Amino acid sequence: IGSLMYASIFGNVSAIIQRLYSGTARYHTQMLRVREFIRFHQIPNPLRQRLEEYFQHAWSYTNGIDMNAVLKGFPECLQADICLHLNRSLLQHCKPFRGATKGCLRALAMKFKTTHAPPGDTLVHAGDLLTALYFISRGSIEILRGDVVVAILGKNDIFGEPLNLYARPGKSNGDVRALTYCDLHKIHRDDLLEVLDMYPEFSDHFWSSLEITFNLRDTNMIPGSPGSTELEGGFSRQRKRKLSFRRRTDKDTEQPGEVSALGPGRAGAGPSSRGRPGGPWGESPSSGPSSPESSEDEGPGRSSSPLRLVPFSSPRPPGEPPGGEPLMEDCEKSSDTCNPLSGAFSGVSNIFSFWGDSRGRQYQELPRCPAPTPSLLNIPLSSPGRRPRGDVESRLDALQRQLNRLETRLSADMATVLQLLQRQMTLVPPAYSAVTTPGPGPTSTSPLLPVSPLPTLTLDSLSQVSQFMACEELPPGAPELPQEGPTRRLSLPGQLGALTSQPLHRHGSDPG
């Protein structure tokens, strides 16, 4: 009997000691992992102490058991019943959930998450997105703005933001810190809205009876308010094209079509300037034949640059190039080494500058006005007194259609001029006259002087055409309008007829 009692007592005591040691061994194993994590990542002392304290409290609170892992091991129907039991206190005593059906309560219970916070733990920081609604079931918390405590909340209090009033989550206007050990039930806004969409009859009752104890939403960050730039940057990543407008005076608003859609830094370009900076079609017209890549860069430059609305530039004389043409100036200075066709295309550029300027006046029909002061630039669209967005969009579309028509007509005119030049060069190729044979009589004449090349004649003739079109064909006081194609086609051969009437002889060394 004594040996039996000794064996039973010894066996029970050893089993008890073994169970104690097993729990202690698990605790030390998990604690060792936490300390190894702290050492590996070199976490500083204040945060390291918070980690160790939280682990110790969580171990004593749950005995080292992962409740979520245990809950996920059950089937979904059983999980709903378990969640309904775990959140029964909240669902029974909170006013917004009263009167809900059994199915609605089960769906809500599945969406709730339980959070346990030790003292000093910050649940929400200032500036964080308010993605959830919090219900306090135990403990107390404090809300701070800077170093000032603005509120202390306790059991059955609710904090967050009214989700039904805002389409997008706002930002917190303060820090939420736990004063004691707290148990909180939180539900994400997407989950709550999903359940309320499934039960629309409960939705009206819920929003009407929901009383948020403390609204954390920062009202200064609401979209459309003066301080909402940061919020707009976070939620409006896919922005449309940006529009900046110059201020319109009362006198300017009476004149229709007073602005032109141009790229940034293009205030001095012609009315047909689009795409790359520098001139019509993204580059100076005089350098068009020598740089074919300008047409390839036109599309990307047009689509990537934001639109700006600026006044037209001052008018340019008909014979003056659009500006920024070092290529043609070098050719004029060193005409001995340049291609003979460069002079002809220089005359073509003069005609283009004249036609572009006159067509700009035809479509816009307003006098040039000086540029406004820099303080009046970049007025935002949302400022008071601005035109409605639809009106601005319609004006932009009208300007775009005008620019497209202008570009089409300029292309047709350019093709006409090039065809005339090619026809003239085919009839009378460039050549130098040879020395004529002296006559049989004693009164022999001296050799004839060489005839100037055709490109120079073409430049003079085209300059005469531009001056003739600019000065004589337009009646005084009438708006400057571009001439039609047949009129220009008839004027060019008439001007060139006198020049080509002389018999030109080919030089023996000319390969053409």
Rank of each mutant, 00 (worst) to 15 (best):
P280N: 12
F235A: 12
R387N: 12
L341Y: 08
P271V: 13
G170M: 03
P162S: 06
E230W: 13
S433V: 11
V348H: 04
T337V: 09
S466C: 08
G477T: 08
A269G: 09
P285G: 06
S452K: 11
M198V: 09
P476S: 11
D460N: 13
Y181S: 04
V150W: 04
L262F: 08
V150H: 04
D128V: 01
G497C: 05
F206L: 06
S303Y: 06
S463N: 11
N339C: 05
Q364T: 13
P271M: 12
N378Y: 04
G477M: 15
D175K: 06
E232H: 11
V465I: 10
G127K: 02
D357I: 07
N220M: 09
N350P: 11
D297L: 07
P300G: 15
F159D: 01
P321V: 11
R246P: 14
L462E: 15
S203M: 11
D183Q: 10
L377T: 10
L457N: 09
Q362A: 12
R423V: 09
L184K: 01
W207M: 05
G508E: 11
E393W: 15
G323Y: 01
G512M: 13
E298A: 12
G234F: 06
L457C: 09
P440K: 09
S452Y: 14
S466N: 12
L504E: 13
Q364M: 15
G270W: 05
P200R: 05
Q402R: 03
P340Q: 11
G174W: 03
E201H: 04
G356N: 05
E332P: 09
R241W: 10
S225L: 12
S466I: 08
G512F: 01
G224T: 15
S501F: 07
V150C: 06
T249C: 10
P493I: 06
M198D: 14
G494L: 12
L481I: 08
L243Y: 14
V428H: 11
A434L: 11
P503L: 11
K333V: 12
R395A: 09
N173L: 11
L133T: 04
R247F: 08
E480Y: 15
P285Y: 12
P300E: 07
G224V: 10
P511D: 04
R368E: 10
M425A: 09
R405P: 03
Q464N: 04
S383H: 15
E329R: 14
C182M: 01
G508K: 07
E232G: 06
P317F: 11
L492W: 08
P317D: 14
I143S: 03
D297G: 08
Q419M: 11
M414P: 03
G299H: 06
R423A: 07
D197Q: 09
Q424A: 05
P476D: 15
A344E: 10
S313H: 06
L193N: 13
D190E: 12
P264W: 06
G139E: 01
P455L: 06
R302Q: 15
S463D: 11
L427M: 08
P292V: 05
P455R: 11
I379G: 04
P372T: 09
P503F: 11
R247T: 11
R395S: 12
R423W: 11
G512I: 14
F214P: 01
G234Y: 11
Q255D: 10
L377Y: 13
T180R: 03
A431S: 10
T373H: 14
V435L: 13
M414R: 03
R138Y: 09
I212L: 11
T229P: 07
S244R: 12
S358L: 09
L192I: 07
S303M: 11
S334M: 09
D397H: 04
E254Q: 14
G494E: 13
S209H: 13
E254P: 09
A371G: 10
P292G: 08
E393G: 08
A132G: 12
P429K: 08
A434V: 08
L376E: 10
P162R: 10
P169F: 01
V148A: 10
P447I: 06
E258N: 12
R138T: 11
R308E: 10
S272W: 07
T229F: 10
A344N: 08
T373M: 09
G227H: 10
G154Q: 10
R359D: 04
V176G: 02
T443S: 14
Q402K: 03
G512Y: 06
R177K: 06
E211I: 04
P271D: 15
P493D: 11
P285Q: 11
R387D: 11
P292T: 06
D157Q: 05
R423I: 05
L144K: 09
P429C: 09
N164S: 12
S509I: 07
G282P: 11
A434T: 08
Q467R: 12
T426A: 09
Y363L: 10
E320H: 15
N220G: 06
R189W: 09
Q400M: 04
T229R: 09
S272D: 04
Y199W: 09
L376F: 09
P289K: 01
F206R: 02
C471Q: 08
N378G: 14
S411G: 09
T426Y: 13
K186Y: 08
N220C: 13
S353V: 02
S209F: 05
G441F: 15
Q364V: 07
L192H: 01
S394K: 01
G494Y: 11
L216I: 03
L184G: 02
Q467W: 03
F135Y: 07
M198L: 07
P326Q: 08
S303W: 10
E473H: 12
M469A: 08
S294N: 13
R274E: 11
N339D: 13
S225A: 11
D191F: 01
E211N: 07
K333D: 11
P476T: 07
M414A: 04
G299L: 05
L243Q: 15
E161C: 01
A269Q: 10
P292F: 15
T437E: 12
L133W: 01
F202P: 03
S291G: 11
I152A: 10
N220F: 08
H185I: 09
E194S: 06
L130W: 01
S353A: 08
S394M: 12
T437A: 12
L403R: 03
L459A: 11
I136G: 01
F468N: 11
S137Q: 08
T437Q: 09
L454R: 10
S236P: 10
G146M: 08
D128A: 03
T408P: 04
T253C: 15
E365A: 11
W207K: 06
G170I: 01
I141A: 03
D510Y: 08
I187H: 01
G497W: 04
L309A: 08
L420H: 11
S140E: 09
L192D: 01
G282H: 15
F245I: 15
A132F: 13
A269T: 08
P503H: 08
I222K: 07
S446G: 12
S286A: 15
F235Y: 11
R506A: 13
E473R: 12
S346D: 11
L427H: 10
L341T: 15
L309V: 07
R168D: 06
S228M: 10
Q422W: 04
N350M: 03
E365H: 04
E298D: 15
I152G: 01
D252S: 10
T337W: 06
R359C: 04
A261T: 14
S346Y: 03
C338N: 13
A167C: 12
G299Q: 04
T436I: 12
P321A: 13
T408M: 04
A434I: 09
L399H: 04
Q502Y: 10
G227Y: 12
E230T: 06
K186P: 03
G439V: 12
R237G: 12
P450R: 10
E211D: 09
E254T: 08
V149S: 05
L399I: 05
G270Q: 15
R302P: 13
T443N: 13
A178N: 01
P322M: 15
S334H: 12
P380C: 05
P162M: 08
T229C: 08
S203N: 11
L184C: 10
L327S: 11
S225H: 10
P317T: 13
P300D: 08
P289L: 05
T337C: 04
A178F: 02
P223F: 05
P438L: 08
N339T: 11
G146S: 13
C182I: 08
R361Y: 09
G265A: 09
Y363S: 12
H505W: 06
G227C: 07
M469D: 15
S294F: 15
A178I: 03
T337P: 12
G356L: 06
M414G: 04
A178M: 04
S284N: 12
Q238R: 11
L499P: 11
